[in-house]
């Protein structure tokens, strides 16, 4: 009995040495954390596999990419609070800006480090209605009709919701020839038709698609396509409004984190590969509008032609838009105050 015990001790001691010995012979496994916003789950699932293949072929190292998803603002805050994200791929530049301005995790000129304002793919905002469009929704005007129930997330916490709001505002501003007071009334009427404000875009999609609440979902174009695809294509229909906004989700590597972990080269390559032919193709396949002419041509039939405004033209950039509309006491807060 005693020998047996001693033997098993010896065996377990030897076994415990095994993991110490192995890495010397195997290649490196690098781990990256990509902190992203809500509707990119499927995109990065595809892209991470493609990048791991590419990186393995190029360097021989294995790279494992972990994903974190949630409302864009919430995700940025997690990174500021210390979530060790190697890269962030968020819904809008303002949330990545916060990493620079609030926590100094990245340099202030981060947006110039990658092509196309660090936005490797774009999207826009469309309307998703139920089968047969029972409420006859054709454009933004129909969303303020009494009795139409509109689903959109909370712009305070969701990046997509801010794009939704700004697209509607842009439409109203054009309709009323730049009269801000009337645009404010329009947006107020629209949000009075909203019965529930989820914290992220995916939450709103779930509310609309799974719980069956609401007549129309204001949604990312890619999210709307995805909902169509998942439901088999016959339960919902996409309504393309006469005017929408060019949404530019932006990406950045987080300097403070990659410097500490020594993952800067791979994190940078990970984002740069998004601009490659393969990366652009995956974006198009997942219903994001690719930047490269080649991929854009390939998926041209998939994306409807929409007249798009940009945030710089209409709102003078994110900083201004954020302050005027979404900061405490901004227009979004005002429309909920009793008159």
């Amino acid at each position: 009995m005693k020998t047996l015990l001693r033997l098993s001790f010896l065996a377990s001691f030897l076994l415990s040495l095994v993991p110490l010995a192995v890495p010397a012979h195997a290649q490196k496994t690098i781990e990256l954390l990509n902190v992203s916003y809500d509707p990119t789950r499927e995109l990065y699932q595809d892209y991470n596999a493609a990048f791991a293949r590419y990186w393995k072929a190029k360097t021989g190292d294995d790279v494992v990419i972990k994903q974190s998803h949630g409302g864009s603002g919430k995700q940025a805050r997690s990174v500021i609070d210390g979530l060790p994200a190697d890269v962030v791929t968020l819904a809008l530049a303002a949330d990545v800006d916060a990493l620079a301005s609030v926590a100094k995790l990245i340099p202030a000129d981060w947006q110039k480090r990658l092509p196309e304002n660090s936005a490797p793919y774009t999207s826009t905002i469309v309307l998703l209605v139920r089968k047969g469009n029972p409420k006859g929704i054709k454009d933004w005007d129909d969303l303020i009709r009494p009795g139409v129930s509109v689903i959109t997330p909370n712009p305070k916490t969701s990046g997509g919701a801010r794009w939704n709001y700004l697209a509607a505002w842009g439409y109203a501003l054009k309709k009323f020839n730049g009269d801000e007071a009337k645009a404010k009334e329009f947006i107020g009427a629209l949000y009075r038709n909203v019965p529930v404000l989820d914290s992220g875009a995916r939450g709103s999609t779930t509310t609309f698609v799974q719980r069956g609440i609401g007549d129309v979902l204001i949604s990312w174009e890619n999210e709307a396509f995805l909902a169509l695809k998942e439901s088999g294509g016959d339960q919902f229909a996409i309504v393309v409004p006469s005017l929408s906004i060019l949404a530019e989700p932006t990406v950045a590597w987080v300097d403070k984190v990659v410097d500490r972990k020594g993952t800067k080269a791979v994190a940078k390559a990970y984002l740069e590969y998004l601009y490659s032919d393969e990366g652009q193709d995956i974006a198009g396949k997942n219903f994001y509008r690719p930047r490269s002419a080649q991929a854009a041509a390939k998926y041209a039939a998939q994306f409807p032609q929409i007249k798009l405004i940009t945030i710089d033209d209409v709102f003078g950039g994110w900083t201004k838009a954020q302050k005027a509309h979404f900061a405490d006491g901004g227009v979004f807060d005002q429309i909920y105050l009793p008159h």
């Binding site: 603002g73 919430k74 805050r77 500021i80 909370n154 305070k156 979404f326 405490d328």
Partner: peptide, 12 residues
């Protein structure tokens, strides 16, 4: 409280 945090308004 959470909404304020998500707008980076820690003090609020």
């Amino acid at each position: 409280i959470i909404t304020k945090l998500e707008q980076y308004d820690y003090r609020g």
